[in-house]
């Protein structure tokens, strides 16, 4: 794991686990996935589930608006100073993978301005199945797909489905209506991901985000030891 070492001087360059003052920085978890799969709803539900026990903040990467940030603000899942929108020049995958500089500034500014923080959720704008987060930006990533996007997505794979630390199959309540076979999706995901975890969730049910929240707590426990 990360060795302890102290810094003096300017802000860290990239994925350093410590802040310039030597304190451990917040755990950063990325949430990616196709348009409409429920990333923002999952972020909102996670904020509601975790905000009383953790100090957390959110960075959104919208495609061409600040709509995701605006949704989170409207839903009042966190105080406004804990939500930052990064503008991505029409390319969210560039901002979370190829050129992470704006996102790094956003997470650092959040820690400076509202810290100390335990957790920062970095949400990608809806993109395609190949969009993954750079390891220089996040410590773990969640890929969110939904049953209505087609039950063959786990079989098709792609970097998001196969390599994300957690795969979330969202909107399971819709499966009977769109003819998606959850058993087949689970088997395909298992084949693609081996031991990596998969969560099936419906945010329509009470505490629907509980499994994902539990996974986040585990990651956080591992991060802070």
């Amino acid at each position: 794991m990360h060795l302890d070492h102290t810094h003096s001087g300017p802000a860290a360059v990239s994925a350093d686990a410590h802040r310039p003052d030597g304190a451990r920085r917040a755990l950063r978890i990325g949430l990616g996935g196709p348009v409409g799969s429920g990333k923002t709803a999952t972020v909102a539900a996670l904020c509601r589930a975790l905000r009383d026990e953790l100090s957390l903040a959110v960075v959104t990467n919208d495609i061409y608006t600040r709509e995701d940030a605006a949704f989170l603000l409207r839903e009042a899942v966190l105080p406004p100073e804990r939500i930052t929108a990064v503008e991505t020049g029409a390319c969210p995958h560039t901002a979370i993978r190829d050129d992470i500089s704006a996102n790094l500034e956003a997470v650092e500014d959040l820690e400076d301005e509202v810290g100390p923080l335990d957790l920062i959720l970095v949400e990608s704008g809806g993109d395609n199945l190949t969009a993954t987060f750079s390891k220089g930006l996040v410590d773990a990533q969640i890929f969110v797909i939904d049953v209505a996007g087609g039950d063959d997505i786990p079989r098709k794979g792609g970097p998001g489905v196969t390599t994300a630390d957690l795969l979330v199959v969202n909107k399971t309540d819709l499966a009977p209506y769109v003819g998606s076979d959850l058993t087949r999706m689970a088997a395909d995901a298992k084949a693609q991901r081996a031991e990596l975890p998969v969560v099936f969730q419906s945010l329509r049910t009470e505490d629907g985000v509980a499994d994902v929240a539990a996974w986040v707590r585990e990651r956080l426990a591992a991060w802070t030891v």
Binding site: T88, C91, T94, D98, S101, A102
Partner: peptide, 11 residues
């Protein structure tokens, strides 16, 4: 243009 310095988000 791929130097990761944020230029891609500006017109």
């Amino acid at each position: 243009g791929r130097f990761p310095a944020g230029g891609h988000a500006h017109s």
